[in-house]
Design a protein around this nucleic acid. Structure first.
Lengths: 242, 242
DNA sequence: ACCTCACCCATACGTAAGTATAGTATAGTA
DNA sequence: TACTATACTATACTTACGTATGGGTGAGGT
């Protein structure tokens, strides 16, 4: 009985299929790859994919992924475990609301830690004052979290106006990459000897360091080499809600 | 002959080791994990780690990773391929300039595309000038993409300084939510009658609209109601790479 | 001398994972 | 009708991966 229902499910989907679109099940596979990758922090195996999609055998998914690879939508190295990645055109098909296997999926996933998004924001073009929008034909995607999550980055909410001239406002989030040895002139999160923390631009000078605020009404802080200056990390990105 | 050189290399490093620091080779392992993860888009296997570190046998790395796991610096699920992640205290030791295996590393890596995702960016706390970091116990996550992807938002790269006083710099990305009827005072992407597009703050005035740049050296644009002013959307977010 | 720590190596085993091969079923099309 | 595309299944082989076991070297401390 389960058999009949399963097939009627596919009939519906196939009915909608127009000529040159990606087959629906392959779209499901793309979404599943992305979702599982986000959830666990590493790409799935064929077995995991199959389970997530409600399939009984790995080979089904194997064939789908092979098809997707041939179309250039998935990067997958032969014989290499967990090497699947959705690339290029494939990114078009990933959607945020994931129900790629109908109701099958819910059964498979154990609710893991609170995590993860996907589906980047499409980068539509470039806007310059006075010029028409320079639209891009091949849409790129802004994938902010992905850019930073790997390298151990974390975010901090900024309070105060100490970096206002660098375009960092109170309420913004700075994305900080932990780095013990920042370069000259980078914006860093510094932990001073007294335990207080600041967001400043770091300059190495003879005798120690200068922590320069981005606000001409504020004074720079000089830290002699004898004092312990701990750098929590350098600011590599900024995000603002408006 | 190679043996002797190899050991003298370690002697030097051990000589520098002070009491309660993380052993240098374990730091190398942490760095290698992070580097390989964002080079390939997925975490390495023990074999790949070993090769990257110039080791002949997986077991060496295995022991290091076990040690790191015991210290809570690496998340690693037993028997699960490619499940390594650097977490917690371990993040302190990853540095931007990666030469974690001396000269050994260069030989191993084939240059792949830079890419790939992971978890959201953890929101670690709040930083205010002069105050210690207000750390959060229950870490939240910044989920930028998912915040906007649903509502049909798109991103635009900003060129020019027309909104510099609002903290929007050239090179930033604004995240735009399509909205035909923006509120007063919001920053909008406007399409003027002549086809040109601008990023300005919108005010409704008697007789039409005022498009106010965030730059006191620039003049506002007045659009009479008779003219066609098309609003592409309102700016709801901003992202900057640094 | 003895012990511990940090670091490396080799062999061998069990299982997870990818893959080759071979079918079944439905819908659409020539 | 035959043929193709989509989709799923099962069995069996090979390899990649993690891991258990056992060992070796040099530095440093007691």
């Amino acid at each position: 009985m389960g058999e009949v229902e399963k097939y009627s499910f596919f009939l519906l989907r196939i009915g909608k299929l127009t000529a040159n679109t990606l087959p629906p099940r392959q779209q499901d596979v793309l979404n599943a790859i992305v979702e599982l990758t986000d959830k666990h922090g590493y790409p799935p195996t064929l077995q995991e994919l199959a389970t997530a999609l409600g399939l009984k055998n790995r080979m089904t998914v194997h064939q789908h992924v092979v098809a997707l690879k041939k179309k250039g939508m998935v990067h997958w190295e032969s014989k290499l475990n967990r090497s699947m990645r959705v690339v290029g055109e494939g990114l078009r098909y990933i959607s945020t609301d994931s129900k790629y296997a109908g109701e099958h999926y819910l059964s498979a996933a154990e609710s893991a830690e609170p995590e993860l998004p996907q589906a980047g924001v499409p980068l539509a073009g470039r806007i310059a004052a006075g010029a028409p929008i320079d639209a891009m034909e091949t849409p790129e995607y802004l994938r902010i979290e992905s850019e930073y999550a790997d390298s151990g980055c974390f975010a901090l909410e900024v309070k105060g106006d100490s970096m206002i001239e660098d375009g960092i406002f109170s309420g913004d989030y700075v994305i900080v990459k932990p780095s013990p040895s920042p370069h000259n002139g980078e914006i860093v999160v510094a932990l001073l000897e007294d335990g207080s923390a600041t967001l400043k631009r770091l300059f190495k000078e003879n005798g120690g360091y200068r922590l320069q605020p981005g606000n001409s009404q504020m004074e720079p802080i000089f830290v002699p080499r004898s004092q312990d200056l701990q750098i929590q990390g350098v600011v590599v990105g900024l995000f603002r809600r408006m």
